[in-house]
Design a protein around this nucleic acid. Sequence first.
DNA 1: TGTTACCGCGTACAATGTACACAGGTTGGG
DNA 2: CCCAACCTGTGTACATTGTACGCGGTAACA
Lengths: 223, 223
Amino acid sequence: MSTMAMKDEDPRPALSRQRVVHAAIAHADSAGLDALTMRQVAGMLQVAPMALYRHISNRDDLIDAMIDVLFGEIALPLGGTDWKTAMRDRAMSLRDVLARHRWAIGLMESRRRPGPANLRHHDAVIGKLRSAGFDIAMVAHAYSLLDGYIYGFALTKMNIPFNTTDEMAAMAQDMFEPFPANEYPNLAEFVTDHVMKPGYDYGEEFEYGLDLILNGLEGALTA
Amino acid sequence: MSTMAMKDEDPRPALSRQRVVHAAIAHADSAGLDALTMRQVAGMLQVAPMALYRHISNRDDLIDAMIDVLFGEIALPLGGTDWKTAMRDRAMSLRDVLARHRWAIGLMESRRRPGPANLRHHDAVIGKLRSAGFDIAMVAHAYSLLDGYIYGFALTKMNIPFNTTDEMAAMAQDMFEPFPANEYPNLAEFVTDHVMKPGYDYGEEFEYGLDLILNGLEGALTA
DNA sequence: TGTTACCGCGTACAATGTACACAGGTTGGG
DNA sequence: CCCAACCTGTGTACATTGTACGCGGTAACA
């Protein structure tokens, strides 16, 4: 039989830009950006490293494409709802995307060649705010504040890998261990009495700040 | 003469951890983190690459040390002022530090081994908030919100290298060029009518959001 | 004067991104 | 049906990186 007419269980379907980009995302999700080497991605696809270069022009181009896929993952419920609900839903969705793809946090807004999903996303958000009565300066304020907070929250909170309270305790131990006891009493109290308490939930922390910002913007808008 | 009794103009003073770290910061400031190779740093100090390893244990240890120097650069005016002024000043100072050292934005809060300046800084900020009447949960809210915003603003705004309006226009051109005209009308309007206007100043943008957050926190505190 | 600790160096190696030329299959024109 | 052009994946090769290892020279102290 010809290779073309092979059945579905072809052990090695043809390479494509899409397949390369998705494999790269999967690998970065599980192993981080540093581990995203061309040879690793090629390995995942059972292909020689140089085969990738038929579909991407270099590693940076690959990352650009990966980021644009993530922009496509952000939900944009801009339909009938008011701007506040729309912005809140978008923020939560973006937060979730960044949680799924931690490696991307520092890259989303620093691409020199934004892809179509990226531009479409920003266009839609700005459009929603404009049609809700924000003038252009106010759009700048709102967008700057919201995205700053969302990305910054992701940056400051998600880099620390604490999945269990025990892990967290161990890390705190390592942190304070090289220094004299009680050298940093406020910080120590904060960590032991709050961060390490069982009920602590970063999700709630995020929403608290988000709502504070949204309420502040609402006040500024109606003023 | 002995090498020890050499005069001040010794062309190559003894290496030290401090000198290595400061050279590395200077290089990262001007060339970025990717260009921060051991060989480059060694070259700045007119020393063989392996000489560095007598004073730092590896590249990651070097970066840890660099970050802690930056934490030391953040002004902490926690004296007689009220919490709001203190937090505002600290935020502005941190913003300035991040502007001077863009390469550090993604690294400040993700060190697994925070240095003494880092811990002292957080301890002081938490202490200031506590003594101003914030309970622990409120400290978590405030700190999360403020640092999220500060780092996020730095991340989203400073990565884009627009020093002049012309450069910005060129970049906007490159951004939209691959796509049909008017594909992204809201974004296009925003860029041309606001970002590229001569009077646009990112500093003001930062302070707008900062004050909104501080006022929101004040409201929550007194409630 | 010896001995010991330290510090900078030269060499070497494994891992990485990617340039280059090639091979095997696919396809379209005669 | 045949051959030429063309894709697409491959093997090899090289420059650049971090850093392990052991050497030699200098300083400090006996």
